[in-house]
Amino acid sequence: MLDVRDICKNFGGLRVSRDISMHLERGERRVVLGPNGAGKTTLFNLLAGTLKPTSGEILLDGARITNLNVEQRARLGLSRSYQKNNLFEGLTVRENLALAAATGEGKTSSFFSRAHESRSVRETVEEVAEMVGLADRLDTGVAHASYGNRRQLEVGLALATKPKLLLMDEPTSGVGPGMIDAFHRLIASLPREITIVIVEHDLDLGFDVADRISVLNYGEVVFEGTPDETKGSDVVREIYLGDWQGDA
């Protein structure tokens, strides 16, 4: 489904991503973990298309997407959510989702139709609102919505284009402890046909939703395995907790 082959990204002399490779099966949930500065955001941007790798290849369903820009990748079924909410301010939740759904259907350019009010868009809007728990908030103005609702809508916008591959950048960023579990359940309950890559620094999200976990450190993949293997890994423990003896 998604094939990342030996991608490197240098900023001048700084090697931020080093020979990263990963292979995802259709429907897989992959969580990419790593401490601050491990190169998670850079990897995310390389996948989303906001950055181009210095070398290496990215393939989506066998097609090279390495040199495609953000909107071209989106049209191939790659969708993303943002670490910082990036919504259509001033509009309602419904209008936000309708914009995403119509754009996802490729309906953007007609002067004579009203795709945003069409049946298929309305159905997508309701379906997605149900998935992210905003079904009873559709007519709320985004500006007046709670942070948690805005966070849910952030995911909803990414889902409304009906993507094959969903990239999520720290989806629980800023969500309070009271809502974290609900958010993990939300992500775990997303349709199984969507392949998901989540970049996150919180280990618990990985353990709750991942099929496999990749751990980045200093721009390299230092570990890959199931959540259980990750829990037992000395490498991961060392990165996250440091050397206990040394610190003491």
Binding site: E71, N86, F88, A100, G104
Partner: peptide
Amino acid sequence: NEDRMRALG
């Protein structure tokens, strides 16, 4: 939000 519209395709 132009950036988001591009991300939507």
